[in-house]
Design a protein around this nucleic acid. Sequence first.
DNA 1: CAACAAAATGAATATATATTCATAACTTCT
DNA 2: AGAAGTTATGAATATATATTCATTTTGTTG
Lengths: 194, 194
Amino acid sequence: MPKEKSEKYSSILQGAGAVFARLGFYKATISQIAQEAGVADGTIYLYFKNKDDILYQYIQFKTTAFFEKMRSAVDVADGAEQKLRNLIRCHLEEFQNDRNMAVIFQSEVRYLRNNALQVKDISKLYLDFLTEIIELGQMEGQLRQDLFIGLVKRFVLGAVEGIIATWVAAERKYDLVAMADPLVDLYLGGIQKR
Amino acid sequence: MPKEKSEKYSSILQGAGAVFARLGFYKATISQIAQEAGVADGTIYLYFKNKDDILYQYIQFKTTAFFEKMRSAVDVADGAEQKLRNLIRCHLEEFQNDRNMAVIFQSEVRYLRNNALQVKDISKLYLDFLTEIIELGQMEGQLRQDLFIGLVKRFVLGAVEGIIATWVAAERKYDLVAMADPLVDLYLGGIQKR
DNA sequence: CAACAAAATGAATATATATTCATAACTTCT
DNA sequence: AGAAGTTATGAATATATATTCATTTTGTTG
């Protein structure tokens, strides 16, 4: 293996991102990834154990960066409501800025079922942000006390993911980030008339 | 092709459902499906054009039945709120009763991307139920007038799917249907204190 | 600039499995 | 019962592509 995560390592990851997003993990071939990355087929095996490993590392890499951004988006805000708004906006922003990642997270992540704790960890980390925020909101008196937190978390995450799925399917014809505040308004106030 | 959708046709679909759910479409092999269905490999090709076609027909079949149930769940109820509750309960019930279907819909459906309008149609049909219900609720004065319906629909569907995804991942250790009413309460009233 | 090492190449290999098809086992009808 | 038609079988085939590795190219050091 060539020394360290070089420039070629990055090209391959990025190429893989493009091809996986376009064709899905299984239909993507090593040759296509190599071509997209501008390297020879064999070169890929200098940097990655095998095809699975490419996906694994891609997700690893993206996830790490994603959660760092999330963390500071949450930390930077005051109060539960603002923290929630920032979390959701950050989430939508990151996916809007990297559609390949959006597609791959939606369709391919669950392929790693066995391979790694990864997938569960991704959700877990996200859900932990939400727990944190919801409990804060309850302490502040801003949120209802009788919430079934396990359900609320899924409710929130599920809805964001649904919004993203639609955006992906629509081929980015509208501004995803603009959905953030209206969505949070729905979380907070519901659809019922007061 | 043997005459009509015989008994063997059903065994194969069911076997495929089990294997696809367990291993995913790509890792599933024809031999495994044949074994699960209790037929020879070659027999499968008397009933299905190819492997893709098995998945296609599986989804076709399940979707049709699913939407018939949905339709009557909605029709049987009075008023927007009850219709919504029935819709969500029915959705959760059907998936709880057929976990293979739940898994396959979650992970494999989007594989058919090119193959068919199918996928879009599935969502489309569901979203039409929701439009219908929301507009009714607004007429009744039960729901807010200022809703961005496109967003609300995705919000509702996304959240249900998220709940189901969690349940699937948890290996059915709790009652999914019990989530229906608390979830609808969240849709209606939100998480904010009044 | 040799001589060596590190990195890259892409044609050859190995493998897995979807699909076919010659053959066999049942059904049906006279 | 046996001919004709229908359905089922599973071993053989064909193909696709992930992975390897002998060779070439590029980089480094004395």
